[in-house]
Amino acid sequence: MLQNETNLSITRFQNGELWETDDTIVTEFPITIKLNQEEFATLVCTPEYLEDLVIGFLASEHVIKGYSDIEDLWIEEGRGFAHVTVKNTHLLNDQFRSKRYITSCCGMSRQGFYFVNDALTVKKVGHIKISLTPAECIELMDNLQKEAETFKRTGGVHNAALCDKTGMQLMRMDIGRHNALDKLFGYCVKNSIPTDDKILVFSGRISSEILIKASKMGCSVILSKSAPTELAIELANKLGITTVGFIRNESFNIYTNDWRISDRKEPELS
């Protein structure tokens, strides 16, 4: 089994001096999805929960509607292949059958791919009535940070979790922000776990691609320790998603749909 981390000898500069030490480095691993025996996409990721990653990616990109669409899936880890056989493909046209290389970076590498077919797959979630207090927002982010062991050792991954008001239900990490969400989504698709009643807690920037992926999952609330982009805010307003950023040191900013965040607790049912 591939490891998520490796130890390397490095030279560190600190307190005006150079000295030799060891450091823990996160692993970067390419996995190529072969869809019905044709190369479909290569994802660069952290090599754990690869099956969940593949399922989540295919569901998010509307290649499958559900886990039952997959007839067979097996990971050939040694060669870096995920072999997937599906019953039907819900692709828009033949251009999606050409191989794509999806990098792990957090810039524009995936946006061009996303926006081609997102109009058919995003979900408006303005009707979902989830409510959180400010204290609950801060506590959920604190819990994510406490559990982020690989980040503490390497500083090289993003973390994401699906939560409800009782706490964290599922957590995944990856070198790619989008991969971390796909791993969450894939696990839920595989195990028939609803996501439209969950809160997405996230360590990275809320970009447009992250906002779109959250909407495809049906999540109506995104909590992040970082900032949103202007386009993400625009999309969040259109889709009815509550975005909360800069959750740090007992403070945060609510950028969209602030009606889900209130300092008044819900009344207890008698």
Rank of each mutant, 00 (worst) to 15 (best):
K99S: 06
K99C: 02
R100L: 07
Y101F: 15
Y101D: 12
Y101H: 12
I102G: 04
T103S: 15
S104R: 08
M108I: 06
M108R: 12
S109M: 03
S109R: 06
S109A: 14
S109W: 00
R110W: 08
R110C: 10
R110K: 13
R110F: 08
G112N: 09
G112C: 01
G112E: 06
G112H: 09
F113G: 09
F113R: 15
Y114H: 13
Y114V: 07
F115D: 14
V116P: 02
V116L: 13
V116Q: 14
N117A: 13
A119L: 10
L120M: 10
L120P: 00
T121V: 11
T121D: 05
T121W: 09
K123P: 00
K124Y: 09
V125Q: 02
V125H: 03
H127K: 12
I128Y: 03
I128Q: 10
K129Y: 06
K129F: 05
K129P: 12
K129L: 11
S131F: 07
S131L: 07
S131V: 08
L132E: 03
T133C: 03
P134A: 09
P134R: 07
A135Y: 09
E136D: 12
E136Y: 04
I138A: 03
E139F: 03
E139V: 01
M141L: 11
M141A: 05
M141I: 08
M141C: 07
M141N: 04
M141Y: 03
D142E: 13
L144N: 02
L144H: 05
Q145H: 10
K146M: 13
A148R: 11
E149K: 12
F151C: 07
F151A: 12
F151D: 14
K152Y: 04
R153A: 06
T154E: 00
G155W: 03
G156V: 00
V157A: 06
H158R: 05
H158P: 00
N159H: 14
N159I: 07
A160D: 06
A161Y: 02
L162C: 05
L162A: 02
C163L: 04
D164T: 04
K165M: 10
K165F: 01
T166K: 14
M168E: 02
M168V: 14
L170P: 01
M171T: 12
M173R: 06
M173C: 15
D174G: 01
D174P: 01
D174A: 03
R177G: 13
R177L: 06
R177E: 08
H178C: 05
H178P: 00
H178M: 08
N179M: 11
N179A: 13
N179V: 03
